[in-house]
């Protein structure tokens, strides 16, 4: 699985050959780079040290930076996030890992009531900038407590930024941008594509700016007059959108695909420009439909370009149930569920 549609220019490898990495390697490289660059940065979480994290994303950091900067903590998300906030108040740059996004809720109070509001409640006297990294999403036979996508529960909270990369290049660049950002960032890593998504990753330091979406497949202006559909997606579901778009193309339907990359604050300008061009929009996400981020995206589209719409906006999402173990591939909004939405929207 590669994002071969990327138009991002890649720096050549030292040997001249492109460096191909998976998401785990790219994120790991970003953590290494930033810990070297910024001695205030620390990593903490459950088994992030000697073990290197449950998905091995922090592998090697403990060997290089030691106990003081790569910290194995007791199993308590409230403790991890609460102490990380104290460290951030003091001036360190913590990058805590929550082993699965499903486990973030024991620390949700510290994120929602404390982290998100620290700058505001102190009138700017204090901030608690940090990046909370956590694997997100289903498709790994993880069952209901290792598969959820809780992004909208954080987008709803004033003061947080929310990021979800879809490929190794963006994962590295977005993580470096997030760690250097002055605000707290939830960095959701789509675990289904941790190793499956491979792509070229430049060596050294670069950032992918927050709040900039990427049009990964563009509809030619000449085709926009015919049936064309904008698909908004992020993380692992981007590849499902691409697969469905490939099938739709066989039926003569063109899709413009926008990888949001940063979910909040969202790059609404790129979305509106695309919807104005196609007049049709589908949002794809793994999270349950009701009050999912798709609802907000469609409300924003209605507010900003209602008169450009040729068809009702559509959501293809997880269902309003807990995440199922046996039937996870029926729950997820995979390409076979996106394709009918494309054809119906195009023919509306």
């Amino acid at each position: 699985m590669t994002v071969n549609e990327s138009k991002t220019p890649h720096a050549p490898h030292a040997s001249g050959a492109p460096r191909v990495m998976n998401m785990v390697q790219a994120i790991n490289e970003a953590l290494h780079l930033e810990m070297k660059r910024d001695e205030r940065m620390i990593v903490l979480g459950e088994d992030v040290g000697r073990v290197g994290g449950v998905f091995r994303v922090t592998q090697g950091l403990w060997d290089e930076f030691g106990d003081d900067r790569v910290i194995d903590t007791p199993l308590s998300e409230g403790g991890i996030l609460g102490t990380a906030i104290g460290m951030a108040l003091y001036g360190l740059v913590p990058v805590p890992e929550v082993q699965f996004a499903d486990f973030i809720f024991p620390g949700y109070d510290q994120i929602v009531s404390e982290l998100a509001k620290m700058r505001w409640r102190s009138g700017g006297e204090y901030s608690a900038k940090m990046v909370v990294r956590t694997p997100v999403g289903g498709g790994i036979r993880g069952g209901l407590y290792h598969s959820q996508s809780p992004e909208s529960l954080f987008i709803h909270v004033a003061g947080l930024k929310v990021v979800c990369p879809s490929n190794p290049h963006d994962a590295k660049g977005l993580l470096l941008a997030a760690i250097r950002d002055p605000d707290p960032v939830l960095f959701f890593e789509p675990k289904r594509i941790y190793r499956a998504a491979r792509g070229e990753v430049p060596e050294g330091d670069y950032v992918v700016p927050l709040s900039k979406a990427k049009v990964v497949r563009e509809v030619d202006a000449a085709d926009a007059g015919r049936a064309a559909v904008t698909i908004l997606a992020w993380g692992a579901m981007l590849y499902e959108a691409i697969a469905a778009a490939d099938k739709a193309a066989e039926q003569g339907i063109q899709c413009e695909i926008v990888d949001l990359r940063t979910l909040w604050p969202v790059d609404i300008d790129t979305i509106v420009a695309s919807v104005k061009k196609t007049g049709r929009v589908i949002v794809v996400h793994e999270a349950p439909k009701t009050c999912g981020f798709g609802a907000e995206l469609i409300a924003l589209i209605n507010e900003k370009c209602f008169l450009s719409l040729e068809a009702p906006p559509v959501r293809v999402t997880g269902f309003d149930t807990p995440f199922p173990y046996t039937l996870e591939m029926d729950y997820l909004p995979l390409a076979h569920r996106i394709l009918p939405a494309i054809t119906e929207t195009a023919r509306y």
């Binding site: 403790g79 609460g82 104290g86 460290m87 102190s122 009138g123």
Partner: peptide
């Protein structure tokens, strides 16, 4: 609140600041 005086503004949530004080000390 005062950054200069190292006074962190109280939370409305009882007890939430205790773990933060530990984190700041650790830092």
């Amino acid at each position: 609140a005062s950054r200069a005086r190292h006074v962190v503004p109280a939370s409305g949530l009882i007890g939430a600041h205790l773990v933060q004080a530990v984190g700041a000390a650790w830092a």
